[in-house]
């Protein structure tokens, strides 16, 4: 009898990432992820609206401690994510190749994603100093404006499977928000692999939650959800935008459109992406107006 030397392939089931855990979808639905030639490379969870709800509950629960964490510590954690992606670089590159990128494009994408994480890690404890202001007012008040995170932010990840995802995720969590990411429908594998990195890199459970599923099915539920504070839509194509904006009116959530398709450009990364996901709180603090008293010192 001829003994087969060919090893059976071990296909992976990519699970969801909710509240620091990797549950399967509660709906029990899966789809096959295909490579460029149409061969099955993995099973993916098809998340349901209840998975979305769980993710949003987890994100809300994690918001308090994440937003109050020392800014430099958030920076350290983002840097740690970058370190771990770096150490798993080959795996990320191979996975991107499976999804149809060339070796050089996959390498570029992965390197840029790591650099992006480090870029925003650096901004964590600096953007407040740049964007907060002391305002001149005509009354006896000390008037100042400071940044506060918006809260729970839903990110609709762009088509660039790793870099695009990191480019929307990093400014969101750097600013103290917690995120529910809907991985790009066409290329979702890298998102879940990134979740596996996040899980082992000091990111508290619930700060980032990643779902794979159908946009058409899940978007209405996410955008109408009253406990989501903002939605980031990062595709150049703005066709979806009016309907998103209409659905978001229920709790007046912010809908941000970052219309990009080339995430490699240097100017894509910017502290203004952090600012986009901040609310500005202005405080009027009564003071004695010394200059007004006429004293000249």
């Amino acid at each position: 009898m001829k003994k087969s030397t060919q090893r059976l392939s071990v296909l992976k089931t990519y699970k969801l990432y909710i509240g620091g855990q990797f549950p399967r979808t509660e709906s029990g639905r899966y789809v096959a992820a295909l490579d460029a030639n149409g061969n099955k490379i993995a099973n993916l969870c098809l998340a349901s609206r209840k998975d979305c709800r769980e993710a949003i509950v987890a994100a809300r629960g994690a918001l308090g401690s994440w937003s109050q964490r020392a800014a430099n510590n958030r920076g350290q954690i983002l840097y740690r994510i970058a370190e771990l992606v770096e150490s798993r670089k080959e795996a990320f590159i191979a996975e991107l190749q499976q999804q149809g990128l060339s070796r050089s494009a996959a390498t570029r994408e992965t390197n840029a994603a790591i650099d992006c994480l480090i870029y925003y890690a650096g901004w964590c404890d600096k953007y407040q100093a740049i964007f907060s202001t002391v305002n001149p007012v005509a009354s006896s008040h000390y008037n100042f404006s400071v940044c506060e995170p918006m809260g729970v932010v839903t990110l609709l990840a762009p088509a660039s499977p790793l870099l695009g995802l990191v480019s929307v995720l990093a400014p969101c969590v750097a600013g103290g928000n917690t995120a529910v990411v809907l991985a790009n429908e066409k290329r979702s594998l890298s998102a879940i692999s990134l979740a596996e990195v996040l899980h082992s890199s000091d990111v508290p459970g619930g700060v980032v939650n990643i779902l794979t599923g159908s946009y058409a099915e899940l978007l209405p539920w996410i955008v109408e959800h009253r406990d989501v504070n903002a939605v980031v839509y990062a595709e150049k194509d703005a066709a979806q935008l009016p309907s998103l904006r209409t659905k978001a009116t229920g709790n007046l959530k912010r809908v941000l459109h970052w219309p990009l398709d080339d995430w490699q450009q240097a100017e894509v990364q910017s502290p203004y992406r952090i600012l986009d996901l901040q609310e500005i709180k202005t405080t009027w603090h009564p003071i004695q107006q010394i200059a007004g008293s006429g004293a000249s010192y």
């Binding site: 709800r53 949003i56 539920w221 109408e224 959800h225 009253r226 406990d227 229920g250 709790n251």
Partner: peptide, 9 residues
């Protein structure tokens, strides 16, 4: 109301 709610309300 047909949409998920927030405890804030």
């Amino acid at each position: 109301e047909g949409c998920y709610q927030s405890p804030n309300y």
